[in-house]
């Protein structure tokens, strides 16, 4: 909630690369291997491509998959934005941004429309993405069928044969237990009428944004060593039942800082008296709206 330290339009200019590292940390052979996996993933939208994930100087679960993809696609002219739960100023976002400033010396920004590459954890920016931009997701568990079918050999066959009855079993269970589809994040989608895909733990609020998006969307799971992708302008449909259609979250009130009624809101506890406040989770979106108003 620290709205503000740096004006969002500002780009932090390119810096000196730490001479002890290759550009963007990874060696060129590794980047080549990852780019091959990326090409295959883009060619088969929604299909999980195995890759030889490397040890990164951060723990698994902190975005090792996303960082490897970002490292492989960065060029010296890129402008990088990193967000964590929508915010540019949380630990994960700040440390990954610093990591690439040091190892790639590239320009960084907090502004969604200025960035060429955006690495994200658990959100898609509110601002519409443009053609030419790349959104890199950090993925903890890439397999949408995993919690119902623990065998990897079996889930790979299910994908190969389009044998997806099991995915609806999960949604059925939600309705039978809660009266509605209670899955609110990592909500499964069907990509281009072929592969069922886990969109990573983004809120289902963001699911519709993946459909027909002009930007390239890349997904990296470091621990599980899988890469998958949604090319620009690809059909992405959230799974549902005819009598229980897919719905996104809605709030009774707008953001208390910028007044936005169309963004994903975080609930923030203000004190120990139970005072609460709802604010945009996308810090750049909230801040740019506040600035226009003032």
């Amino acid at each position: 909630m620290s709205q503000s330290i740096i004006s969002p339009a500002i780009i932090s200019p390119a810096t000196q690369i730490d001479p002890n590292y290759n550009f963007a940390y990874l060696n060129e052979q590794t980047k080549k291997m990852i780019r091959r996996a990326l090409l295959k993933a883009i060619a088969i939208p929604g299909y999980q491509v195995p890759f030889a994930g490397r040890e990164m100087p951060m723990p698994y679960g902190w975005g090792t998959g996303g960082v490897q993809i970002t490292a492989s696609i960065l060029t010296p002219d890129d402008v990088l934005k990193v967000i964590d739960q929508g915010a540019d100023d949380t630990t994960n976002a700040v440390s990954i941004r610093k990591f690439f400033q040091r190892t790639a010396g590239i320009a960084t920004t907090l502004n969604t429309s200025t960035a060429t590459v955006i690495q994200t954890r658990h959100r898609i920016p509110e601002q519409k993405l443009q053609q030419g931009q790349i959104l890199v997701y950090q993925v903890p568990i890439p397999e949408p069928l995993r919690f119902l079918e623990p065998r990897e050999t079996e889930t790979r066959k299910m994908h190969a044969f389009e044998d997806y009855g099991l995915m609806h079993v999960k949604l059925y269970e939600d309705i039978s237990q809660h009266g509605h589809i209670a899955t609110t994040y990592a909500y499964p989608v069907m990509v281009e009428d072929r592969y069922v895909m886990d969109p990573s733990p983004i809120p289902k609020f963001d699911n519709p944004k993946m459909n027909n998006n002009p930007a390239l969307q890349l997904f990296g799971a470091g621990r599980e060593k899988r890469i998958y992708a949604i090319p620009p302008y690809t059909k992405v449909v959230s799974l549902d039942f005819e009598d229980h259609p897919f719905e996104i979250q809605a709030w009774d009130q707008p953001c208390e800082i910028c007044g936005a009624g169309d963004s994903f809101l975080d609930e923030v506890i203000m004190d120990d008296q139970g005072t609460r406040m709802f604010v945009c989770s996308d810090s750049d979106y909230c801040q740019s709206r506040s600035e226009v108003q003032s």
Binding site: G165, L166, H168, V169, Y172, S176, F241, E242, D243, H244
Partner: peptide, 17 residues
């Protein structure tokens, strides 16, 4: 219920009720 419904859903049933 989900156990019984699995084969139906695998065969394309998409109406919960």
């Amino acid at each position: 219920g989900a156990n019984i419904g699995e084969r139906l859903m695998a065969n394309g049933w998409r109406h919960y009720d």
